[in-house]
Nucleic acid binder design. Structure first.
Lengths: 222, 222
DNA sequence: TATCTGAAAATTGTCAACATTTTAAATAGT
DNA sequence: ACTATTTAAAATGTTGACAATTTTCAGATA
């Protein structure tokens, strides 16, 4: 029957709910998480909660210490470490995308870029631009057509986002990478894989520089 | 009390057991896995089994299709894709190790190399050499002192090993990278991070070449 | 005051039962 | 023979109960 949807199983919903809550800082870095607590909060039994927690642990977002579970509490060093990994894999994605993208893909990427241009021109809220940033990078990742890379980058992404949040506190990043995105899009659309790779390396480095700046500001206020 | 150990919880044991079984081809690529089956086999209830399965799924070793679970059935392309990732991260590990290793580390790495030299010289069984290969690379990873990288590389490693197994069938790889390991060890011990990185890139490429060869032989026999 | 001790409370570990959904098989109708 | 339809079997989804640990904390002891 059309339009009939079946609900996702609880462990999946719990998994997503927790991920979301982490970004919303409902659970804070270093905070202890208990099965019972989560089960009460979501009003489901502990079974599915456990499954969700195991998934989060494999992702590295939850950390186990003895028999207790805590929200991953990243150090500044962790963020730097992660960016080192990002700096290797993200450019690979760009390179592969430039090699493997087809005409439809080029169109899609250009449309995405337009969306961002508009969003920036009309001074839309930070959230919207952040969302588009993610979508833009996701698109490139998809066009890389490398399933393994996609898998790892997804892990890195969710961790990056979480870490930025965790380390930067209430700071509101308003990152505009318009020029960089334009250049990257152009390189990919021209199938210039080397250039795409170089530009992406540069982009990750700039992104890291900004993180460092924000971090220094955020910490000296305390 | 000394010597008193408490058993690991069932989901951990199940997780390890399954990983091991995958390498031993007890469960074959593409094979369907049921909770009930595993629960009966390990003679425990389905709860812990589910947790272990969720972990394996996050690792990418189990794959879900609808409500059914299958052992990851890697294509040759998957292997190539994975090596592309490996080629980026493994050299990073070598580079960082060259930068961050201390005197104790250098000693440890040299000892490891000696072990391998002996093992090869005395024509020990393939399994022993393979084990040492892994340990050697693990050591470098540890010395990189980058926790994030360690986490991702572990994922890549277990997947690589599994894939090789899955794709190569009964083929018995007897890979000796002695010369390469000597060079890498030297570079790291001299803190020459650029050289260490380059050598490791080369090494991963050689490794990939061998995989390709083995694969072609393995497939044309069918 | 410091620390030892031993309930009491909280939390994780495990299971078995039951509900729901999915898959496979058997039957019947064309 | 082919394909619906029904039924049975198997698997997953979810829960509540209970066991085993771990933590917490008040009171006892030095």
């Amino acid at each position: 029957m059309a339009g009939i949807i079946k609900a996702e199983s609880y462990h999946i919903q719990a998994y997503k709910y927790i991920q979301k809550s982490l970004l919303e800082k409902k659970y804070k870095p270093g905070e202890q998480i208990t099965e019972v607590g989560l089960a009460n909060e979501l009003e489901i039994s502990r079974g599915p909660i456990r499954e969700a927690m195991r998934m989060l642990m494999q992702d590295g977002l939850f950390v186990q210490n003895g028999s207790r579970t805590f929200v991953f509490n990243p150090s500044y060093q962790d963020a730097l470490d992660l960016y080192l990994c990002k700096e290797r894999l993200e450019p690979l994605a760009a390179k592969l995308a430039a090699k493997n993208i087809d005409e439809d893909g080029k169109m899609e990427l250009s449309n995405m870029l337009d969306k961002i241009e508009n969003s920036v021109a009309n001074e839309q809220p930070v959230e919207e631009i952040t969302t588009y940033n993610t979508e833009f990078n996701d698109l490139i990742l998809t066009f890389s057509k490398n399933d393994q890379l996609i898998h790892f980058m997804n892990l890195i992404r969710s961790k990056t986002i979480y870490m930025r949040n965790a380390l930067l506190g209430e700071v509101n990043r308003r990152d505009v990478f318009l020029e960089e995105y334009r250049a990257i899009t152009a390189a990919i659309n021209q199938n210039d894989d080397c250039l795409a790779e170089q530009l992406m390396i540069k982009h990750v480095e700039v992104d890291l520089e900004m993180l460092k700046q924000y971090f220094e500001n955020a910490t000296e206020e305390e």
